[in-house]
């Protein structure tokens, strides 16, 4: 049996006209290209996301999800329009598996890094006397970060930070970190990190991640600003950040990080 016979043997009768399949495949290809280039570039350059980080984050998620699905869809329908056999769906299935595998690998990596870090924190950082789920690391540098992971989230403050900052500025930091934890920003970052690791040759994936990271910080700032004054937050940012040189983020991001600080002055 020749390969042509094989293909016709496996052929499934078309439920929709061939021309429709081709048209939809082309449409999805156009959507994929738009979501892979011009749309995210425009969003990254726009200034409005700094004013409405919530909306911008929703858009980034939609772009990521729709981009992936349209890519898979275009590949599936395009293949099917050329060879009407289930074999034509294999490339699309392969792509889907590839993307999901990267998501799984990222989840495992992140979980492992967090677990290792927590083991050391348990042994080295004393619980904060008053704040719950907060630990104090005995280091002179002013540092604040959190390990967000749902129920077991831990906020870490350094002794240097507690020594330098007054209660109001500290409250700004804990409110900011609590927002990350409660709104599960870690899951969002995880998804975009997986996206970047699946598409390392694709610059848009890298700066999508940087944009999302910066927008998340603005969002957490906004939550903190409900409880504290802008000047408390500004003092806290200065105390932690002023001693450190900025830069060296993944990809060359927009000025979104500076926007975060400019919003406080507005």
């Amino acid at each position: 049996m020749t390969s042509v016979d094989l293909a016709s043997a496996a052929a499934v009768p078309l439920l929709v006209p061939h021309a429709t399949i081709v048209a939809v495949a082309l449409l999805l290809a156009v959507v994929t290209i738009a979501l892979a280039g011009p749309v995210p570039v425009a969003l990254a350059r726009a200034s409005w996301p700094s004013r409405s980080p919530v909306l911008a984050l929703l858009l980034w998620q939609a772009i990521g999800l729709a981009g992936g699905l349209s890519m898979i869809g275009a590949l599936a329908l395009g293949g099917y329009s050329l060879v009407p056999s289930w074999l034509a769906l294999l490339p699309a299935a392969g792509l889907a598996v590839y993307l999901l595998t990267h998501l799984a690998i990222t989840v495992v990596q992140v979980t492992r890094q967090r677990r290792r870090h927590l083991v050391l924190l348990d042994l080295l950082a004393a619980p904060h006397p008053t704040e719950t789920a907060t630990r104090v690391l005995d280091d002179a540098a002013p540092v604040a970060y959190c390990l967000p992971r749902g129920v077991g989230s831990v906020t870490v403050l350094s002794r240097g930070l507690l020594d330098t900052l007054d209660a109001d500025a500290l409250r700004a930091i804990t409110a900011h970190e609590r927002a990350h934890v409660e709104q599960r920003h870690d899951l969002l970052l995880l998804a975009f990190r997986a996206w970047r690791s699946a598409l390392p040759w694709f610059p848009v994936a890298a700066y999508a991640e940087a944009e999302v990271a910066a927008l998340i910080e603005m969002l957490a700032d906004d939550v903190a600003r409900r409880d504290v004054q802008d000047c408390d937050l500004a003092r806290a940012i200065l105390a932690v950040g002023a001693g450190r040189v900025s830069g060296a983020e993944p990809a060359e991001p927009s000025t979104r990080e500076s926007d975060r600080f400019r919003r406080l002055a507005a």
């Binding site: 967000p148 970190e177 970052l189 995880l190 830069g247 500076s258 002055a265």
Partner: peptide
Amino acid sequence: RSGVFSRFVGGISAEDADML
């Protein structure tokens, strides 16, 4: 470390520090 940690703020540039 993205997704593993969330730090309150990384480094800030001299201009941003001046502005604050």
